[in-house]
């Protein structure tokens, strides 16, 4: 018969060595601190952007935001011009990235044998690993003279079409890999049922698997848009420096990221508390809000297909 005292002894034995337990909680606390650093980073980003953007907005007259064109050193801060140019580059990029990215994803997920996959998938990964500044040079030296001027001989040397195509090329691997993941998550019972009803392979791929994975595919496209909006080096090199709003894709102009890069490049001349330099933080804040909203939206879509299957 066990007495009360015996039971207490056993329980003390099971809790183990004090030093071991102390080390355990120390390790856990260290790892938690590392994870908490990410919150500090977010807070620092928000403070940097909002603090300086507020200083900028309060130092200028709001009518300057609707002045003609984006010319920081002349006190003209037409944000709408930057946004129009950004959306134009992004739109062109999506015309490239969506068909090529999704087509690649359908092929890799539904058609490719494992051997073909093993060869072609790394190619996409290598393309994803090419630095964006290299694509910027490619846009200037190859896409503009050979492709854009082939279609529009009068195109400016820096133009939205070339920049958009290059940004699209950069976005293809992202769109392809996220949407491929979504299609591979579709259970094979759906495919088998489709074949069982006599459907062909293309019918199964495009009319069964593709619609079943649609929320993940939309997430991929939204992520691509977000990536294209935030892409900097391509537009800094290949989209030009014009601050006047234009809707012509064969001309060039500043995008949001292009304007930030341009201010940074010339920062020796305008550094300090002048409004011209602080406008960089304001544009950065707008860019941050755009991309954050798109990323949150895309995260929601991904969670939807993860829940379903």
């Amino acid at each position: 018969m066990a007495t009360v005292d015996d039971q207490r002894d056993i329980s003390i034995d099971l809790t183990g060595d004090v030093r071991r337990r102390r080390r355990e909680s120390l390790v856990k606390a260290t790892f938690f601190a590392a994870a908490a650093v990410s919150i500090l980073i977010s807070v620092a980003i928000v403070i940097a952007l909002i603090g300086k953007a507020w200083a900028f907005v309060s130092s200028i007259e709001l009518s300057q935001l609707w002045a003609d064109g984006w010319f920081p050193r002349r006190g003209r801060f037409q944000l709408a011009a930057l946004i129009v140019h950004t959306l134009m580059v992004t739109g062109i990029a999506m015309v490239v990235a969506v068909p090529f990215g999704l087509g690649s994803a359908v092929y890799l997920s539904e058609y490719a044998r494992s051997g073909v996959r093993r060869v072609l998938k790394p190619t996409l990964e290598i393309l994803a690993g090419i630095p964006s500044v290299v694509l910027g040079f490619f846009a200037l030296q190859f896409i503009t003279p050979n492709i854009v001027r082939g279609m529009f001989p009068g195109a400016q040397s820096a133009n939205f079409l070339a920049a958009g195509i290059a940004v699209g090329i950069l976005t293809i691997p992202l769109v392809a890999s996220v949407s491929e993941d979504a299609m591979r998550a579709v259970p094979s019972s759906l495919r088998e049922a489709s074949y069982g009803l006599g459907a062909k392979r293309w019918h199964t791929a495009l009319r069964v698997v593709f619609p079943a994975a649609i929320s993940g595919i939309i997430a991929a496209v939204i992520l691509g848009i977000s990536r294209a909006i935030g892409e900097t080096m391509v537009v800094a090199l290949a989209a030009g420096l014009n601050g006047i709003m234009t809707f012509n894709p064969t001309e060039g102009g500043l995008t949001m990221t292009g304007a930030i890069a341009n201010l940074a490049v010339g920062s020796d001349q305008v550094a300090g508390d002048v409004a011209a330099f602080q406008s960089l933080f304001f544009v950065g804040l707008v860019l941050f809000i755009f991309t954050l909203a798109l990323n949150i939206l895309s995260g929601r879509m991904v969670r939807r297909y993860r829940q379903r299957y």
């Binding site: 994870a35 919150i39 980003i45 977000s226 990536r227 935030g230 892409e231």
Partner: peptide
């Protein structure tokens, strides 16, 4: 919250990290 925050940080454009670096 930590997980969502890290996912969102991964999507922040690199130039915004430049702004963070300049400031911080």
């Amino acid at each position: 919250f930590l997980n969502a925050n890290i996912r969102n940080l991964a999507g922040v454009p690199s130039i915004v990290y430049g702004i963070l670096g300049l400031f911080l």
